[in-house]
Design a protein around this nucleic acid. Structure first.
Lengths: 340, 340
DNA sequence: TTGCTACGTCCTTAATCGTTGCCATTTTCT
DNA sequence: AGAAAATGGCAACGATTAAGGACGTAGCAA
């Protein structure tokens, strides 16, 4: 590989002059610039990115750290991040945190191979993030609680989401509602469940623990949980799945048992993944502002990079997406019992 | 940030000793190693990745270059790449080629910020790839034709895929088949179309140019193309969409015109994207071995990195996935006309 | 026992990777 | 001549690593 020295030699100038010429720094005469550029072209010179980054201690790139690059879930979020990063003239790389503390992601974080990072990966420990956080290295964490002066949190209001989902069911006449939960250690799940409970008590409904079934955010888990719910007999009139993937599994389980949605049971999910629109029946769910979250996250990074003061905590609202998986039951006002 | 110098000073040793100690190179006494490690911990020292990469001229990371990080299409492929990369102890970063020659992707390629790259992004020009290719920098291109000693091609056999799709329709009694194409400059599309034509002539059917409608691989495009097909009157009995996305758009267009699938017209797609299974009717399509393609691609990178000789061209077969969007028509042997 | 060489262990010195950018120097222009 | 413009020299950036030095100890002869 040709280096800048080779270019300088061939152009008959000093290395520094070559550097100036190649980087469009105005102190070089047009004639010299041309000489240098020609030499560079002839030698097929490409600058060594590392050397350059090392010297300037700036990489012009932002890392987006995801648990799994292959998941389709983050699509919208990535789009938000990508667009804002691009318009700011920065580069974006995505890296996976699979492999925990050995992962690419952690390496990028710790070794400061980027100017800033956005983290949406719950398998990276708080500790690692704390260790990596420092003055001048902005980190934004999504859907995660972390108290550190150099870390900014952007969260979707899962509690509110859980609340409006439940409220929607209640408004449609449902009083017996199952909650199919995500894993116990999931912060998101916990918040959604809180919202669920709050909506119940706001409507003076009692939470029945036998209708809390535990899943794990996977389709498989939703399927199993639903089978359990069915096996246990005495179905509720509606089920709130802590995410859409599980709801999909649930729909399948109900179908296999000839329980039809929404006639026999109403179903609501959370996330609004792309598939939700296409399953049958189309799934009513809670949409998260993923694009906005992504865009906001990068935006905050840039603000910090330009040394502006920013708040350390942001919460984004969710939104109900009505489709066909929730039926409205009419209630007889006198007896307070459903008519249909 | 603390540097290795600080660590060395605090541990009371020379920089080089600190380096040896930190990298587990045996020339240092256990006591010293401990001193250095303690010092590093106390200073919260993290090595500077760039400096290190610069000196060793090796990054231990592979780049996966995609047209758009937010597309859900590559999921399987990424998984294949990811797993193989991990098991080889390398890091993987994904970068987008949005922005053409200004993109992150191109920068990584040209500036050799990684040890090898896998490219699946048709908006990167051949020229750029040629410029970046060189001894010792393995590049694998997917679904793309490029003649260069330092570049390896991994292709899915689109021609064969087009052939079996068409053959499947013909075997099911279809003789009038529309082809909804991708963009004209798409190599994939061209190959699929070739397969389509080959299957037709192998069955002594004539290709009718009025049944070739041009789309652009998007759902929107498939929708528009289908509307045109319908408007033109005289529908074929089957339609082969050059990809699933377009088929989805087509399904919608047919539904809006009360043309039912597969009763009135059979539909076959290409790709087997996740949604295909969920639309109604579930889409018969051609599945590409994406996981395998990804895994093979990285594997080849590693082989080259360890200086093994490898072939420069690989072609992977596709597979028919039968679902519900193709109807079999029975043909009267005598009259050679369909019965139903 | 003493003195000398020889060798191994552990550590240090210093060169290097390719760029950048400060400062000094030379050239050019007014 | 003096200012401005163009160019050159060189020390960083933070790590790695070849080569060499200091020290201790063992082996052996006198």
């Amino acid at each position: 590989m040709a280096t800048i020295k080779d270019v300088a030699k061939r152009a008959g100038v000093a290395v520094s002059t070559a550097s100036y010429a190649l980087n469009n720094i105005k102190k070089v005469s047009p004639a010299t610039v041309k000489k240098v550029q020609d030499a560079a072209r002839e030698l097929n010179y490409q600058k060594n990115g590392f050397a350059s980054d090392l010297k300037r201690t700036k990489t012009n790139t932002i890392a987006l750290i995801l648990k799994d690059l292959s998941g389709p879930y983050y699509s919208e979020l990535i789009k938000g991040v990508q667009e804002v990063t691009m318009t700011n003239g920065f580069d974006l790389i995505a890296c996976s945190s699979i492999g925990g503390s050995q992962s690419t992601a952690v390496k990028f974080l710790k070794e400061k191979r980027v100017d800033g990072a956005i983290i949406l990966a719950h398998n990276i420990t708080d500790e690692i993030i704390h260790e990596s956080a420092r003055e001048g290295f902005p980190i934004v964490v999504l859907d995660r609680n972390l108290n550190n002066d150099h870390i900014i949190q952007v969260e979707v209001d899962n509690t509110q989401g859980g609340y409006i989902a439940t409220e929607h069911l209640i408004q449609n006449g449902h009083q017996e509602i199952a909650y199919i939960s995500g894993p116990y250690d999931s912060h998101d799940n916990e918040m959604r469940f809180n919202g669920f409970q709050q909506a119940l008590s706001a409507n003076e409904l009692r939470f029945q623990s036998r209708w809390k079934i535990s899943g794990d955010f996977t389709r498989e888990g939703g399927y199993r949980a639903t089978k359990m719910l069915i096996a246990q007999g005495n179905l509720p009139t509606a089920a709130f799945y802590a995410n859409d993937e599980m709801a999909l599994g649930g729909i399948q389980a109900f179908r296999e048992n000839n329980i039809s949605i929404p006639e026999d049971i109403s179903v609501i999910g959370f996330d609004d993944i792309q598939l939700s629109e296409y399953v049958s029946p189309p799934l009513t769910t809670i949409k998260q502002p993923k694009y906005e979250a992504g865009a906001l996250a990068v935006h905050l990074i840039f603000q910090q990079l330009s040394l502006e003061k920013v708040d350390r905590y942001y919460k984004l609202p969710t939104e109900l997406v009505e489709r066909k998986s929730v039926r409205t039951r009419r209630i007889n006002k006198e007896t307070e019992r459903p008519i249909n």
